[in-house]
């Protein structure tokens, strides 16, 4: 149906060494970001006793350090796909392998930014971010520093003590991004993380995500409904079709980063993707 293109991506070799000083000595991560393989992945939910196929025949190989973006119509199973990869959803067919090993559950190595921010309403921003450290042993001073750094990164300095109800939707989402980043996962799954932020912040955060990605060599898989965003960030764009969700096409975007948003090749690819998605109706 589609060909899985393996990109030997040597443009950015992961640079764990320089981040070592940044997050203390308890890095458990290896020198390389993990690769991810999905083989014939299928997922069905049961609604009212009836089987509802959501994803079918998903094959995808993501090289370490790649940026993959996923686009597709609402309800085609994008969030479900990320839940499967994250390990939250264990009941599925096929295989999901990270560095050659089956995913059997969540891991701090795979971060997930949910479509909704999911901050705990009874905790302030700082404490919400600190939830990420709950299962790790970490020096309190380091913890505070890392949290500060990441809040600064997402532009929330000064809002440490604010409660989620005191934040705008976009700010809450940015806090959630900080929360997912502090553990420096090797694979970061992002479910429309910029859906709730304004256009300017969106551009700023796209650049920030790209910077984090380049700097830390992390593998990123990001769902978005914004095709410009998908093409600006993604080494590859996975276009899903719906009912059941299948891979319609995988587009390799062979342009260096950071990209020119006005690039002619991007404009051409955008047209193609739009045609693909429109073809569904």
């Amino acid at each position: 149906m589609h060909s899985v293109v393996k990109l030997a991506d040597a443009k950015r070799s992961p640079k764990w060494t320089d981040s070592q000083t940044e997050s203390g000595s308890d890095r458990r991560f290896s020198q390389h970001a993990s690769d991810l393989v999905l083989r014939q992945v299928a997922k069905a939910y049961r609604i009212d006793g009836k089987r509802l196929p959501v994803l079918e025949d998903i094959n995808l190989t993501v090289e370490p350090g790649q940026f993959v973006t996923i686009v597709g119509a609402s309800g085609c199973g994008k969030s479900t796909l990320l839940r499967l990869i994250s390990g939250l959803e264990r009941d599925f067919d096929g295989e999901i392998l990270v560095s050659g090993r089956n995913v059997t559950g969540p891991s701090l190595n795979r971060g997930l930014i949910f479509q909704d921010h999911r901050l705990f309403p009874w905790l302030n921003v700082e404490d919400n971010v600190a939830l990420a450290f709950e299962s790790r042993r970490i020096d309190p001073a380091d913890k505070r520093r890392i949290i500060q750094e990441h809040l600064k990164l997402v532009g929330l300095t000064g809002f440490e003590k604010a409660f989620p109800y005191q934040l705008s939707g976009g700010m809450a989402q940015r806090a959630a991004i900080a929360r997912a980043l502090v553990n420096e996962p090797e694979i970061l799954l992002l479910d429309e993380p910029l859906g709730a932020v304004d256009a300017l912040t969106r551009l700023y955060l796209q650049n920030e995500l790209q910077r984090i990605w380049t700097q830390k060599g992390v593998t990123m898989i990001m769902v978005t409904h914004d095709i410009d965003e998908a093409l600006f960030l993604g080494d590859r764009v996975v276009v899903l079709q719906s009912r059941p969700g299948r891979v319609r096409r995988i587009i390799d975007v062979d342009l260096p980063h950071p990209r020119d948003r006005e690039d002619r090749q991007i404009a051409r690819l955008k047209k193609e993707i739009l045609a693909d998605l429109a073809g569904e109706h």
Binding site: P106, L112, F114, R118
Partner: peptide, 26 residues
């Protein structure tokens, strides 16, 4: 949804109770 967050960050049972279950059911 909140349980997903706890799962993602690999809360121990005790963390789950202390950080999520008790405050959410307060």
């Amino acid at each position: 949804n909140y349980r997903d967050v706890a799962a993602i960050f690999q809360f121990s049972r005790w963390s789950l109770i202390r950080r999520l279950i008790v405050p959410a059911s307060l």
